[in-house]
Design a protein around this nucleic acid. Sequence first.
DNA 1: AGAGTAACCGAACGATCGGTCGGGACAAGG
DNA 2: CCTTGTCCCGACCGATCGTTCGGTTACTCT
Lengths: 195, 195
Amino acid sequence: MTTVKRDTYTPETLLSVAVQVFNERGYDGTSMEHLSKAAGISKSSIYHHVSGKEELLRRAVSRALDGLFAILDEEHARVGRSVDRLEHVVRRMVEVLIGDLPYVTLLLRVRGNTETERWALERRRDFDHRVAELLKAAAADGDVRGDVEVRLATRLVFGMINSIVEWYRPDARGASDREVADAVVRLVFAGLRRD
Amino acid sequence: MTTVKRDTYTPETLLSVAVQVFNERGYDGTSMEHLSKAAGISKSSIYHHVSGKEELLRRAVSRALDGLFAILDEEHARVGRSVDRLEHVVRRMVEVLIGDLPYVTLLLRVRGNTETERWALERRRDFDHRVAELLKAAAADGDVRGDVEVRLATRLVFGMINSIVEWYRPDARGASDREVADAVVRLVFAGLRRD
DNA sequence: AGAGTAACCGAACGATCGGTCGGGACAAGG
DNA sequence: CCTTGTCCCGACCGATCGTTCGGTTACTCT
């Protein structure tokens, strides 16, 4: 057999364990001892696969950021009316966020204590800015309401989407990613009050 | 003079310094050494005013929770049509969140590692539940759209409001608390798209 | 002046932190 | 057989963690 399946750890499989613990206890609140207990191997064995705690964080937030930025390259995000491109990006953000839930969760909680965290915050700002420009273009087209500032609206919409990581759990019999995306798009564009 | 003004620390003034550092570095990422540097007194002197790091956290989240629960006792939150009571609560949540910004920020970031944090999470859930029932009542009145689940809508609206702590800064020449509250109420109830 | 106390400090505590080190078990390839 | 490399371990490192302790300063009250 080639590399079909492993019963030992790879950097990737170890990462999935680590990210889960990071999200439960917080990155700073997680010790290498916690990770070794959760992974079922000794603390020193972790260093056989990764260079240290911070590499695990870097790998995790990179994966989340790559997923988000990939949205902007999709066709529906590049061509068409700005308000429709915005709607597509909003919907896909929800889907990516749910698809890579633990990784995006970790990304959204970094505070900037280390160089890795500050780099993640900067890339997040880049992404936010790209979406903000989309909303700005939609406003220029007259397709979104003019009595709420573009910058403010962007932040509030991002807040609504990003908050999904605080409660969405894939195992529950709750809403699917499609249903959540529908609800977000509906609330963002049409509001809560009955039409 | 009685207790007009102090140049030494009280538990309250020390708390305001600690909360600021907690929010910059995260609670787990903040050491007592960090606090002593920020407060300008020695590490051991902190223990003259408070029993330890966790008491500072408990005082902070208590203050935030008291502010939020007080909203539910206000007249406009108790009497009137459910959808109007909901609108009042949403608006006041924004105002309280901005008024006690650092304390609410800390509250919204606790992960549940200690007993104090778990207690804070439980009280938060209580509050969320109270507001969810208000939305449920408004839905029963037929005053909010029926094609988005009540539980889901509650979480998304809370997400939008709570996300304010991630970007609002009082010193900037940005929006006032009233303006932000107006924008939130407008987005939540009427949506982004032009009427 | 003397007693009491609030506010503070430097030094040190045991525990835990992230990370290192030398080596053992085991499978593959010669 | 022996070597090589992967995967893992217990023991340990210096540093830092939250906290404690003994003691000093300075102000208040009588």
